[in-house]
C-alpha cells in the first residue's frame, strides 16, 4: 500500500504539471483544452528527436549519476520545452483566437480542440509509428528498502523535477507582475479587464506556461514508462478530473487535484484491474461534480 502511494505520488506529480496549465487556460478563456494530453505527447517526442540526435552524434551519452538515463535527455528538455511552447502559442493563434474574435461560445473551442488533438496524434503516428520508443535502453535501477518497498531511482528524479517546475511556475505567478495579472484573469475576468489587463497578450503567457509544463510532464512520463502515441490521451480524463477537483482557475487546487488523482489511480490497483485507472479518475470526477461542482478551492459559480 505504501508502495502504491509512492507510485501515486510519482504519477500525481506528472498529472499536477499538466493540470496547472489546463486550469489556467480554462480559468482565462473558459476553454477545456482536449488537446492538452496530445500536446504532452508532442513534448515527449520532441525530446526524443534530440536524444536520438545526441545518440547519433555520440555526445552526452554518459549516465547521469545513479539514474537510468544519460545527459542527452537532460539537455533535450530545453529544445523540447521551446517546441512545446511554440506549438501551444501557434495553436492558440490559428484556432482559438479566431474563435474568440468571432465571439462564439467556448464550447466551440472545446470541439475544435478535439480536432487539434486528433491531428497532433496523427502526426506523431506518421513520424514515429505505433511502436514504443525509449529514451534509453537498458536496465532501470531500483531501490529496495528492508521493509520490501521498492521503487526506481528515476522516480526520485521525476518527483524532484516536477516539483521544481511547479515551484518555478508558482513563483512566476505569485512574484511577477505578469504572473499576478494572469492569476487575476483566471480568477475574476471582468475585474481584471476593468484594471486594464490585455487579455490577448496574457494568453500568450498562459499558453507558454502550459506549454512548458506539459513538455516537462510528457518527458518525465516518457522516462517513467515509454513513448507511445496514445500516452497523452490516457491522461485526458485524470487531467480534467484534477482541474475539476481543484476548481476552475485555481492553481493550488490543480496541484492538489493532480496528486489526489495520481494516488487514487495507483492505490485503486490494489483492488481493480490496472486498466480501470482512467475509470477511477472519472468516478472521482463525477462525485466531485455532483457534490461540490465548484471544486475544493474553486470560486463560487456566478
Amino acid at each position: 500500500m505504501i508502495e502504491l502511494t509512492i507510485y501515486g505520488i510519482v504519477l500525481g506529480s506528472i498529472i499536477a504539471l499538466g493540470s496547472m496549465g489546463l486550469t489556467l487556460i480554462w480559468g482565462i478563456t473558459d476553454l477545456f483544452n482536449c488537446a492538452h494530453g496530445d500536446q504532452m505527447t508532442v513534448g515527449a517526442y520532441s525530446a526524443f528527436i534530440f536524444t536520438s540526435l545526441f545518440a547519433h552524434l555520440n555526445i552526452l551519452q554518459t549516465k547521469v549519476g545513479p539514474f537510468s538515463f544519460n545527459w542527452g535527455i537532460v539537455v533535450a528538455f530545453i529544445p523540447a520545452i521551446l517546441i512545446s511552447i511554440m506549438l501551444a502559442v501557434a495553436i492558440d493563434r490559428w484556432v482559438y483566437q479566431p474563435l474568440r474574435r468571432a465571439g462564439v461560445h467556448s464550447i466551440t473551442g472545446f470541439i475544435a480542440s478535439i480536432g487539434v488533438a486528433w491531428a497532433l496524434r496523427g502526426v506523431v503516428y506518421i513520424i514515429w509509428g505505433a511502436d514504443f520508443h525509449f529514451y534509453n535502453q537498458g536496465l532501470r535501477p531500483t531501490i529496495v528498502f528492508q521493509s520490501g518497498i521498492k521503487f526506481r531511482v528515476d522516480e526520485i528524479f521525476i518527483v524532484i523535477v516536477s516539483w521544481l517546475s511547479v515551484l518555478f511556475v508558482y513563483l512566476f505567478l505569485n512574484r511577477t507582475r505578469t504572473g499576478k495579472a494572469l492569476r487575476a484573469l483566471a480568477d475574476n475576468q471582468s475585474l481584471a479587464l476593468v484594471s486594464g489587463i490585455n487579455v490577448e497578450r496574457m494568453l500568450i503567457w498562459a499558453w507558454s506556461v502550459a506549454g512548458l509544463l506539459i513538455a516537462v510532464a510528457g518527458i518525465l512520463y516518457g522516462i517513467e514508462t515509454q513513448l507511445r502515441p496514445e500516452m497523452g490521451w490516457i491522461f485526458l480524463l485524470p487531467l480534467f478530473a484534477a482541474v475539476i477537483l481543484g476548481g476552475q482557475g485555481s492553481i493550488t487546487g490543480a496541484l492538489i487535484g493532480g496528486l489526489v488523482m495520481g494516488i487514487a489511480q495507483q492505490v485503486s490497483t490494489a483492488w481493480l484491474a490496472p486498466s480501470y485507472k482512467p475509470a477511477v479518475a472519472f468516478i472521482i470526477m463525477i462525485l466531485v461534480l455532483i457534490f461540490r461542482p465548484q471544486g475544493i478551492l474553486g470560486r463560487r459559480s456566478r
Binding site: L99, I114, G115, W118
Partner: peptide
C-alpha cells in the same frame, strides 16, 4: 494520415 485529415477538417470547418 486519416487522423490528421479528419482532425484538420473538424478544425477548419469550426474556425
Amino acid at each position: 494520415i486519416r487522423y490528421v485529415l479528419i482532425g484538420l477538417l473538424l478544425v477548419v470547418i469550426i474556425v
